[in-house]
Simulated assay, not measured.
Amino acid sequence: MEPGHGRFTRGVALLSQPLTLTRLSAPTFWRCEPNWSWVSVELTDHLLWCVLDGRGQLELDGNHQDLSPGVCAVFQPGDAPLATHDPHRRLLVFGMHFETSQYGVAPQPRWGEVMDRELLKALARTSDSSYRRGDALGQRQAELCLEQLIALIWDAVQQPSRRVTDAAVDEVARQLRQDPGRDWSVAEMADRAALSRAQFTRRFVKQFGMSPAQYLIQARIDRAHQLLTESGMTVTQTATALGYTDVPYFSRQYKQRTGRTPSQEH
């Protein structure tokens, strides 16, 4: 077994269950002052710490990490992190303290780079605004945001080699699923991911196990099933909506992937 693998497996198992919190502090945003530095005493609770803007350096137990947007950490009791930043590119940090009876919430290493910056910002904003409402539902929403943020950090620790280009390919795949009836070309997909056609196709196959063209067909069939079973649209209407000019061809593709003909779905 690789070093740390057992602990990682236990951590993933832990995250598959709701986080048992005994205390959650108010979520906080802070733009660090120009002369700011952080020399923490040993923490007595857990701390979620996410960089949203700026540049700096973080250190824990002799391990160093450059700080930039997307770098997030979960510290545990006993940790004593150190940090500095560039006063001309001041850090904007989101964080909250929390206590839990569960062991192994913090990953090792403590930090990872979350590639989906928009999701990170949205979760931070939602956590903050929900908590400050002061009601039970707001408290629960803040807790759910914390759980999601911790899961994102664990995922980033698990996949440290994941790059911006991987996120770009993910986004293209998401767009295919959202609008499968569009007349997509591989050239357009590659352009949206800022890659050559060859680079895009290689990365797409690596991430999804099939070519962009096959992925698009599957997205169309998935949407067709939804339209046929939920919308009341006819087979011809469904085929046309999803970009098929040949209804029999659509029916063959549908049956190949579902084992049923489109007419059987009505």
Rank of each mutant, 00 (worst) to 15 (best):
T9W: 01
G11T: 03
V12L: 10
T20C: 04
T22N: 05
L43Y: 04
L43K: 02
H46I: 00
C50W: 01
C50P: 01
V51F: 04
Q57F: 08
E59M: 07
L60G: 05
L60S: 08
L60Q: 13
H64L: 11
Q65A: 15
L67Y: 02
L67M: 06
P69H: 11
A73E: 00
V74G: 02
G78E: 08
P81S: 05
D86S: 13
R90L: 02
R90G: 12
L91S: 12
G95N: 04
Y103M: 07
P107F: 03
T126W: 04
S129L: 14
S130N: 06
Y131R: 04
R132C: 02
C145T: 09
Q148D: 04
L149D: 04
I150F: 03
V157L: 08
Q158L: 11
A168Q: 15
V172P: 08
G181E: 10
V186W: 05
A190C: 12
A194S: 14
L195C: 10
R203Y: 01
V205G: 01
Q214V: 00
R220L: 03
D222A: 15
L227F: 13
L228Y: 11
L228S: 09
T234K: 08
T240M: 03
T240P: 00
V247R: 15
S251P: 03
Q253L: 14
Y254M: 11
Q256H: 12
T258Y: 10
R260Q: 14
P262R: 13
